[in-house]
Design a protein around this nucleic acid. Structure first.
Length: 245
DNA sequence: AACGGAATCAACCGCACCAAA
DNA sequence: ATTTGGTGCGGTTGATTCCGT
């Protein structure tokens, strides 16, 4: 039989709204099922990705703070390219975001350092750079030692399995800053950034003004029912797991 | 203002893992 | 024990935006 053709490429606002609604309705699991019943012509995989990387209310957007940068550097030197592992420790950031950040910024940094190395080797052939940890290649053995003591469910943990990784590194120290210091600093810089409006909430929530909203039923493509978003100031809007409470 | 290259980021792909059938 | 479906994850691609000339 003819399989309904799946859509690919960028998501439309309409699709975002539809996805958000069904995630709220069904929770962020069973993505294939959700994709089917929602009427979205997207794969479950695609829906999950869109939710996790873009629509989730816990997402922080905007530039990485210096402390986040340091944290990523530090964690990457410990875990290598285990982006999801790193993302779990950097609150509000997705593995994709961190991966992208690393690729662009670190590549640039590496280029800069290469240039500097060239210059410095001309000036002083014996000079070298000592801080190479940020460019370490992937660690062969990966450690799952939790840095944060709580077992908070990260926003992109949507119930599926995780790759099993042997914990070889337990008890080893990799101290530059204490994690308490880092988290305090992050909180502080987040506060400052919020004030300067550099961090945006996930764009889908732009459609949820403080009071109440509903899908525009004039749009012919709307297949899902009315959506009501309550004021989130009194915690009646969305729980962290994406369910209405 | 126009163009080209670099940077950024959303999205896809393929594979691995796990649980249920 | 094997198969299948659902999901997580890392790598990669391609479109868009930014920036310098």
């Amino acid at each position: 039989m003819a399989q309904e053709e799946m859509r690919k490429g960028p998501w439309t606002e309409q699709e975002d709204l539809q996805l958000a609604f069904y995630v709220n309705l069904l929770s962020d699991r069973r993505w294939d099922f959700l994709a089917k019943v929602s009427g979205l012509r997207r794969t479950g995989k695609s829906c999950r990705l869109r939710w996790v990387n873009y629509l989730h209310p816990g997402l922080k957007r905007g530039k990485m703070t210096p402390l986040e940068e340091r944290l990523i550097l530090e964690l990457h030197s410990k875990w290598g390219n285990r982006w999801s592992r790193i993302a779990r420790e950097v609150s509000g950031r997705t593995d994709n975001e961190i991966k992208n950040y690393w690729r662009t910024h670190m590549r640039k940094k590496a280029q800069d350092e290469r240039k500097l190395n060239k210059v410095s080797s001309i000036i002083s052939p014996s000079s070298s750079f000592s801080n190479t940890s940020s460019f370490s290649s992937n660690s062969p053995d990966v450690d799952f030692t939790p840095i944060m003591e709580n077992n908070e469910r990260n926003f992109y943990h949507t119930g599926g399995q995780q790759k099993k990784v042997v914990d070889h590194d337990k008890g080893k120290n990799m101290k530059v800053y204490s994690m308490d210091d880092l988290w305090k600093d992050i909180e502080l810089s987040e506060e400052n950034e919020t004030k300067s409006k550099q961090i945006m909430p996930s764009p889908i929530w732009d459609y949820c003004p403080n009071t109440l909203w509903m899908a525009d039923d004039q749009d012919e493509s709307k297949k899902f029912p009315m959506i009501y978003c309550l004021d989130n100031k009194d915690n009646t809007f969305l729980a962290n797991n994406g369910l209405f409470i």
